[in-house]
Design a protein around this nucleic acid. Structure first.
Lengths: 334, 334
DNA sequence: TGCCGTCATATTATCGATAAAATACGGCTT
DNA sequence: AAGCCGTATTTTATCGATAATATGACGGCA
């Protein structure tokens, strides 16, 4: 492996001069610079990032730590990447499988040191566990869980989004709306906050809240959502609307409804949450709560950058606004 | 920051003994080990990975470098991650935006050194550019491009998959099948190999190959596919089948067909490629060529692991077999 | 002539771990 | 009691860069 020392020897200068040429820290005379560059070319030198990392304590890398690589997280990661790159760093993704242990491990001092900053999409950790994390590394948390005040945090207006979607379906005639994937259990705040929004919409319209209409889904996959909804249909519980806690859940619902001969939106209206790319394409177009990925990405990266540049003011807790994108799966749609 | 030296002082031993306790390299006496562990606990010591990396030359990390984080790559990454973790390393994703420059940069010696091994999904680089990469770092290439022999490479049976899908639609009555997203241009081998399979199926059935039925798509998104197919429909070119070069393209086709009042599979049969998770759920179920993500992941990780363990035999070029998963979008389906 | 300031380059110390070689020590053999 | 061995532990050298400091050369000016 060719090192700076090799380059220095080849160019007849000291190692420090090579470093100065390459990093443009101290000024170097023109002819010297030329000789160094020539030597770098000739030997094909490339900096050893491990050594730089150890000495300079910087990696020019930011990690986005996600529960899984696909769907929602893949889409948002693609929005975050260019923003990080614009700051001269690059982004890597790590995956935790949504397990608290893995999330904790990812936040260990050792692993954190690999990065200049970390965006963590919290899925498994609760407030207490997060509170035990002691680090001065720039971190921004994303996601719908409760987090300690000292962390920067970006989350969505879950309740409002669910309310919008549900109210929209009520306005267009639905009276018995399932909350598919929602829960009463508050451990997973995403599913309970959205359930609260669904409840509010029902109450605002003077409708009853019937616990049987809250249908949990075991694993947040389309497959599980499909099964869950097929069970409901088989049970004979009457419904004329489905609020799905995410678009992935909504996709499973689309399949279950189609298989059961229920027409969307004529027999059943359907709305999801996240507004994934696929939502526009799944016939008849999936009405969905748009969380504005782009905006969330910008906010989160902005908060992170501020920390990486040395800002030490109080943490911010941003609630990203949402809006409803109406498509063919509800009766207000095209 | 608490270092090994701090722990050593606290435990009254040398730094090397601490290292030996933590890494279980040389045997350490039981009482000494206990004192060291106690000191580690008391001080909250965690190893500095940068220092270890510099000295030991190992990071216990593997990178999967992808064109973009979403859809196909997200799904396959979720398959790869557990396999890497089973080997005691962890996986990170990096993104290249499919640009040759970024892929080349990712392969630079400097960046490679951050990882014990690299899985690269080649999207932009051609054979010549790859040939310029000189490194002894374990690398496995994935994807449908042509690559130099000396690299391990896993790709799909593109031609065969396209042939299967097309032949299946012919068998069930289609006579004029579009090759949506396919190309004559061989730069992107995925799109041309799959076109060749489509052609072969047509020829095998004694049907004409009409160049007008090869419909390129600008950017491999569902949105672009939808536009492209709407254009075809508007042009009046008659067709009764669509082979979509990927499921993402097929999804765009689903939307275009639905909007145009064409029924799937009655008026038009449709088949895709990749068998993404969503393919089972988009009504009426998307017939798709299954590339066996799981198997591809295992093969690629196996080849990589072999290299990381020191094997230096000749590189392998694996063509992963494919099979057709028939669903409701074609007439053989349920 | 002698002193000072400035720009260019070189020296020294260090980041925190690990590989390899060296030493200490108690027991066992003969 | 001397010699040897194996286990436990320490010493020394090193990975490759960078921060901080030191040196050198040269021109300007009193």
């Amino acid at each position: 492996m060719v090192t700076m020392a090799d380059v220095a020897r080849e160019a007849g200068v000291s190692v420090m001069t090579v470093s100065n040429v390459l990093n443009e820290r101290l000024p170097v005379g023109k002819p010297t610079r030329a000789r160094v560059m020539a030597a770098v070319e000739a030997l094909g030198y490339e900096v050893n990032l491990a050594a730089r990392h150890l000495r300079a304590g910087r990696t020019d890398t930011v990690a986005f730590i996600v529960p899984s690589f696909h769907d929602y997280f893949g889409e948002i990661a693609d929005k975050i990447a260019p923003l990080i790159e614009a700051g001269g760093r690059h982004l890597v993704l790590e995956r935790t499988s949504a397990s608290p242990e893995n999330e904790m491990a990812a936040l260990s001092v050792a692993r954190l040191r690999f990065y200049d900053g970390v965006l963590l999409s919290v899925a498994g950790l609760d407030r207490d566990q997060l509170d035990r994390v002691r680090t001065s590394k720039p971190i921004v948390l994303l996601g719908e869980r409760d987090v300690p005040d000292r962390f920067n945090h970006v989350r969505l207006a879950n309740e409002e989004g669910a309310r919008l979607a549900t109210a929209h379906m009520i306005e267009h005639g639905s009276r018995r709306i399932l909350a598919l994937g929602c829960t009463f259990d508050t451990a997973h705040m995403m599913t309970s906050d959205r359930r609260i929004g669904w409840e509010r919409a029902l109450r605002d319209a003077g409708l009853d809240v019937d616990a049987r209409y809250v249908v949990p889904v075991s694993d947040y996959t389309s497959a599980d959502a499909r099964y869950a909804l097929l069970d409901v249909i088989a049970s004979g519980l009457p419904f004329d609307g489905v609020f799905a806690v995410t678009d992935i859940i909504a996709l499973g619902a689309v399949a279950a409804l189609a298989e059961s001969g229920l027409r969307v939106p004529v027999d059943v209206q359907l709305a999801g949450f996240d507004n994934l790319d696929m939502a526009s394409f799944v016939p008849p177009g999936l009405t969905s709560v748009d969380a504005n990925h782009e905006g969330v990405a910008e906010t989160a990266v902005g908060l992170l950058r501020r920390q990486m540049e040395g800002w030490t003011g109080p943490a911010e807790h941003v609630v990203a606004p949402v809006r409803l994108v109406v498509r063919g799966s509800t009766r207000g749609g095209a």
